[in-house]
């Protein structure tokens, strides 16, 4: 019966890979797996006795408002002390993630402010003050995100009478980022397992991965809509 197999398949290929290759897919895969893991992690991790999400959300919004309106140094100083104390209670990996997010936002706003600081040096203090506020605001939001489950956040938003369509869109977005992220991760894994040589068409293969992800995203959104219609959705977002 083994005659069904082609002759080349019955033996083993002496194969020695040449040059370097496959590293781009491996690196992308690791980065993607980390990002999806963090997203899932943020959805699930809370302390043993967490503060109610509504309370935290109101505090956060009030804090952001006070911080953005503040004109005296004392206010950002107070918030800096508070936030630094709070992030000390986070596990190491979360602490790093919160700090990196805040520093990235601060660096970006500093770059945006640079022309103003160079052209009008007298505004330098105000510009740096603004960068500091951005750093603190992003740190606070990131801290809230890392210590509150996503379903608790949407529950709190509902109690604050935020429109259902917004909450629904946020929910679906987060869910499908994770879903499509997993799909990309699987496709890259399949690519990695079969990319056993020097891929002269790496760009085309990775383009294929993105194309399939786009098609799958479209299909998933259509299926979600159809599932909603089957459960009585009538294009009226007010009832959500």
């Amino acid at each position: 019966m083994s005659d069904r197999l082609p002759a080349w398949m019955k033996g083993s290929d002496p194969y020695e890979p040449k040059g370097r290759g496959g590293t781009f897919a491996a690196r992308t895969l690791r980065a993607l797996a980390g990002a999806i893991g963090r997203l899932r992690f943020q959805q699930g991790r809370e302390g043993r006795r967490p503060l109610p999400a509504l309370f935290k959300l109101v505090l956060l919004l009030a804090g952001l408002l006070v911080l953005s309106l503040a004109r005296k140094l004392m206010v950002p100083l107070f918030f800096t002390a508070l936030v630094l104390v709070l992030i000390c209670f986070l596990p190491g990996r979360d602490l790093l993630s919160v700090l990196v997010t805040g520093l990235f936002a601060a660096a970006l706003s500093l770059v945006l402010m640079l022309p103003a600081m160079i052209l009008a040096p007298e505004t330098a203090f105000n510009c740096l003050f603004l960068v500091w506020k951005v750093f603190l605001s992003v740190l606070m939001v990131s801290l809230f995100n890392h210590t509150t489950q996503w379903n608790h956040i949407t529950g709190a938003l509902k109690r604050l009478h935020v429109p259902g369509i917004l909450i629904f869109t946020l929910d679906l977005t987060l869910k499908y980022i994770v879903l499509l992220g997993r799909l990309v991760s699987d496709l890259l894994t399949a690519y990695l397992l079969r990319a056993v040589g020097k891929d002269r068409q790496a760009c085309s293969s990775l383009g294929g991965v993105l194309g399939v992800t786009f098609l799958r995203g479209t299909e998933v959104s259509r299926e979600t809509y159809e599932a909603m219609v089957c459960r009585g959705f009538t294009d009226d977002y007010g009832g959500l």
Partner: peptide, 26 residues
């Protein structure tokens, strides 16, 4: 070591449970 990794992957063929996530060519 990417050379050793590719030689290893060449020797093992893996069919995923969901083939949808294995196909990326046109």
């Amino acid at each position: 070591d990417s050379r050793r990794a590719r030689a290893f992957h060449k020797r093992i063929g893996y069919l995923f449970q969901n083939p949808d996530t294995m196909l990326f060519n046109g």
